[in-house]
């Protein structure tokens, strides 16, 4: 299982950040996703895998600076 915000979704081997986002059905173009303590940026969503038990938090990052 992995936790995305307050939801839980099943984990599978090789699951990427992009997979997680499509699984939760949120089409928002997030710029950054937090996976446990690490930040993953959009260009890396498809090549970054998510470990089992991870806490995932998508961050829109439109502001900041």
């Amino acid at each position: 299982m992995i936790k995305v915000k307050d939801r839980k979704i099943p984990w599978r081997e090789g699951m990427t950040v992009a997979d997680v986002l499509s699984e939760i059905g949120d089409p928002y173009p997030y710029a950054v996703v937090r996976v446990n303590e690490k930040s993953v940026s959009r260009p890396d969503f498809e090549r970054t895998t998510v470990p089992d038990g991870a806490e995932v938090y998508p961050i829109p990052m439109v502001a900041g600076g």
Partner: peptide, 20 residues
């Protein structure tokens, strides 16, 4: 849940800026 500024300050920006 977001950038952990209370722990990391603004240092989270370094790798994000690099990624983009």
């Amino acid at each position: 849940k977001q950038h952990e500024m209370a722990v990391l300050g603004t240092t989270h920006l370094v790798t994000i800026m690099d990624d983009y």
